[in-house]
């Protein structure tokens, strides 16, 4: 007699846990019932991200780099599941390699993006990059897995905490990625993954007063209304390529802090 397999429930990833949508809604993605996040789920995710920010941002860069590297390890272990959720083997390999690449940036950012400033006076003056804070990412659907990785990791490696909304057709990839994230030593809440209808959730995140930056790369069509909503608390609005890999992608999610101190005997 053949064994009956145990099927997976496709859920949200908020605050390190896998809840269903509080709304009880699901939608059909590639034949699966996937949780359809509500605006309340989005708010819960922002709250989890805000709570996780001090811890994640204060972690040493070495440590953050290791957590990202651990994600690559977990993705490698789940390569078969990830492969089924995207365009195939080569996209998974590219996503894993990109994760390793970003992991290595954690402890180099300050040296490449920061500076010591030779001011005309007896002061020591330096500039360091710091995370912007809570980042909402409206991730591209295509490429499904690589798009999620390419937008989420640059924000995370710099010390931001993230609420990422997967595109509808990337929902399965998002859930698979969330399960890899959950087993990678990311503190609960540092990265939150929502599946559902992005156009339904985007206005709430763009207008949320406790979100510091919004990445609209995955938005198809005009972003005028989202940008107007973002102005309410002077959010950083980020628009990039769906499939890019660069330290400058990390710097979009960073602030620069300049510190002065007098020099004297």
């Amino acid at each position: 007699m053949t064994r009956l397999s145990v099927k997976k429930t496709y859920k949200l990833y908020i605050g390190g846990a896998f809840p269903r949508s509080e709304s009880g809604r699901t939608f059909d993605a590639a034949g699966q019932n996937v949780a359809r996040a509500s605006r309340k789920d989005a708010r819960d995710a922002v709250r989890a991200a805000r709570a996780a920010l001090p811890g994640w941002a204060a972690m040493t860069a070495y440590n953050r780099g290791q957590v990202l590297y651990r994600l690559a390890e977990m993705m490698e272990a789940r390569a078969a599941d990830l492969e089924a959720a995207c365009s195939g083997r080569s996209e998974v390999e590219a996503a894993i390699d990109r994760t390793v690449w970003y992991a290595g940036w954690a402890d180099k950012l300050a040296q490449v993006l920061g500076s010591s400033n030779p001011v005309a006076g007896p002061y020591f003056d330096f500039t360091i990059p710091e995370p912007t804070g809570v980042v909402a990412i409206l991730a591209p659907s295509d490429p499904p897995l690589l798009g999620l990785v390419s937008r989420t990791l640059p924000a995370l490696v710099g010390g931001n905490t993230v609420v990422v909304v997967a595109g509808e057709s990337a929902a399965i990839a998002a859930v698979e990625l969330a399960e890899a994230l959950a087993t990678s030593d990311f503190p609960g809440g540092s990265v939150n993954v929502l599946t559902g209808f992005a156009d339904e959730l985007a206005p709430w995140l763009a207008g949320h007063m406790d979100v510091n930056a919004v990445d609209v790369t995955g938005v198809e069509g005009p972003t005028v209304e989202l940008e107007r909503a973002a102005a309410e608390n002077v959010k950083r609005v980020i628009r990039a390529d769906a499939d890019s890999q660069s330290p400058w992608e990390i710097s979009r999610f960073l602030e620069l802090k300049t510190v002065w101190h007098p020099i004297g005997p």
């Binding site: 003056d125 602030e255 802090k257 300049t258």
Partner: peptide, 25 residues
Amino acid sequence: GVVWANTYNRFDPTSPFGGYRESGF
């Protein structure tokens, strides 16, 4: 964006200046 320690209101062309949050970007 700028922290002055044991001094205040110092400016220099080599020194980046600007805000966090609602102080701009």
